[in-house]
């Protein structure tokens, strides 16, 4: 049995060391590679803990998908243009490590002084073998007791996909075409927009000429027309 512990310790050691390396690395690409090592080791730990299916999922989703995605993003961000920085401000570093140490101490005390008591379930090694293995067991439990949550998760994933499409859509054209704009003001003096043709200062033909193809319903004064699409654009960027 000692071999099992030895293997576990080895895997955990590599995982922890590479995790520490991940946050220490100066280059984000190196960090990502260190994270891959951690994840692979964690997947191995999962196998030791009778979670073969999750180990595979871990490799496929995390190392296969998410980290590749991260690396893609890293490539897209031009490293030369990144500001030269490594860590945060010194105070932030001190507080960060301090908090980490305190929390580690607390959790260590918790792990060593307390025991978790629970009723053992039916899914021992033999129990899983009886239904055909870990994947079958998970399938059985998942699709009998967690149908609604899994559908909700599917919805979340769908929403995330749409959100990603939205976030990643290409920028608008460099020179936006002036959008058709409707100027509607509430007139105090007339009811229900009846003063459409009661703009004494500017004749309607005049307005049409000045404002291009914009729709003009009514306005109280000429200032209403002085803002152009360019102005609006500037206002949005500020």
């Amino acid at each position: 049995m000692a071999a099992e512990v030895l293997v576990f310790n080895l895997l955990s050691g590599i995982a922890i060391v590479s995790a520490a390396a991940m946050i220490m690395m100066r280059n984000p690409v190196h960090s990502a590679i260190a994270l891959v090592i951690t994840f692979v080791n964690v997947a191995a730990v999962f196998i030791m803990l009778r979670a073969e299916f999750l180990a595979v999922v871990q490799i496929i989703v995390y190392t296969g998908a998410i980290l590749v995605l991260i690396l893609f993003v890293l490539m897209l961000v031009n490293p030369d243009e990144l500001p030269d920085f490594h860590g945060a401000r010194p105070m932030q570093q001190i507080f960060g490590f301090g908090l980490g140490i305190i929390l580690l101490a607390e959790i260590a005390v918790a792990i060593l002084t307390r025991t978790v008591v629970a009723e053992p379930g039916p899914w021992t090694e033999d129990g899983m073998a009886a239904v055909g293995g870990n994947v079958q067991a998970i399938g059985q439990v998942l699709y009998s007791g967690y149908v609604l949550p899994i559908q909700a998760t599917a919805l979340v994933l769908l929403a995330a996909t749409i959100g990603a499409l939205f976030l990643g859509r290409p920028d608008e054209d460099e020179e936006p075409t002036p959008s058709r704009r409707t100027v509607a003001t509430i007139s105090l003096a007339h009811t229900r927009g009846s003063d459409q043709d009661e703009i004494p200062a500017l004749s309607s033909a005049n307005i049409k000429h000045e404002a291009g193809d914009r729709d003009l319903i009514m306005a109280r004064d000429a200032d209403e027309f002085t803002s152009t699409p360019e102005d609006d654009q500037k206002g949005q960027q500020e």
Binding site: I16, A19, M22, I23, T38, G87, F95, G96, G100, L103
Partner: peptide, 15 residues
């Protein structure tokens, strides 16, 4: 615990 705290420290200290 170790991995979690390493992650937390990373969030706290990296920019």
């Amino acid at each position: 615990a170790a991995l979690f705290i390493i992650g937390m420290v990373g969030v706290l200290t990296r920019r």
